[in-house]
């Protein structure tokens, strides 16, 4: 790994200045747009609504439920998708047997399964976690399998010639060798798990941010609706950005 911190450079300053400029322009455009259509709340109202919501225990409980469900979905996606991807990458026979069904399952719009999940996993955490899992699983599985298959054959011969144990080969060659694709899978799984959870909350649930967005919409509280959506985007964006930076740092 390279040293974690690089000294601030002129380039870095310029990038930051650029980002700030883009943000300012976006807010101005938003302000103008809000005057053209009553559905679009003003930026100030939106930020006030966010402040109001973040002080509301019911909102915080919803935020907590959504994030917990997404976390559970993500962890399950890693626990299932990681080993399954390893198996698929390592075994030609497993690929022959499972590749078609995985491609097919990955291809269907997963949300159509939600009505099927509801009676099985119930309206609480169960169904949305499973939906988040369905969204997060495939990027982990597919990236891990592809990563394993791209490991140069000579690494396996190296491991064998050194008489490395299976465990040593797994932890000291295989896992480091697929660190890139694995991190890509993690990054996609994090945001897609959240997408899966929120999407199922839009359809049917008792609590959660998706539900809050929907009820804000029905009651015409557009500022509350937009601020909640922005909060979701910000959370997802921050996580992705962090993981993306991590990804770029690995060799």
């Amino acid at each position: 790994m390279s040293p974690a911190t690089a000294p601030p450079t002129r380039d870095g300053c310029r990038v930051t200045a650029g980002s700030v400029a883009v943000a300012v322009i976006a807010v101005i455009a938003w302000e103008i747009a809000s005057h053209l259509s009553f559905v679009i709340p003003e930026p100030l109202d939106t930020f006030l609504a966010l402040g109001r919501d973040l002080g509301d225990p019911r909102f915080l409980a919803g935020l907590r439920e959504t994030l917990l469900a997404a976390l559970a979905a993500f962890v399950l996606a890693m626990l299932i998708g990681g080993p399954a991807g390893l198996g698929l990458g390592l075994s030609r026979r497993a690929r022959v047997v499972f590749s078609p069904i995985i491609t097919m399952l990955n291809g269907i719009p997963k949300i159509v399964l939600y009505p099927v999940l509801l009676p099985v996993f119930h309206l609480g955490y169960g169904s949305k976690i499973v939906m988040g899992l369905l969204f997060g699983l495939f990027p982990v599985l597919i990236n891990t399998a592809a990563g394993v298959r791209e490991i140069p054959d000579v690494y396996w011969r190296l491991a064998r010639s050194l008489r490395a144990t299976r465990w040593q080969t797994l932890t000291r060659i295989l896992l480091p060798a697929i660190r890139g694709p694995l991190l890509t899978g993690v990054r996609l799984a994090v945001s897609l798990s959240l997408v899966g959870v929120v999407l199922s909350e839009f359809f049917a649930t008792e609590r959660g941010l998706g539900r809050i967005v929907l009820s804000a919409y029905s009651s015409g509280d557009y500022a509350g609706m937009v601020s909640t959506i922005l909060l979701l985007i910000a959370i997802s964006f921050a996580l992705s950005l962090f993981l993306w930076r991590l990804e770029r740092r690995v060799r």
């Binding site: 000579v154 690494y155 060659i173 660190r179």
Partner: peptide
């Protein structure tokens, strides 16, 4: 006790 140096680049990049 038998060391092998392979034809391909086998140095571990990480």
């Amino acid at each position: 006790d038998v060391g092998v140096m392979f034809q391909e680049d086998s140095v571990l990049p990480w």
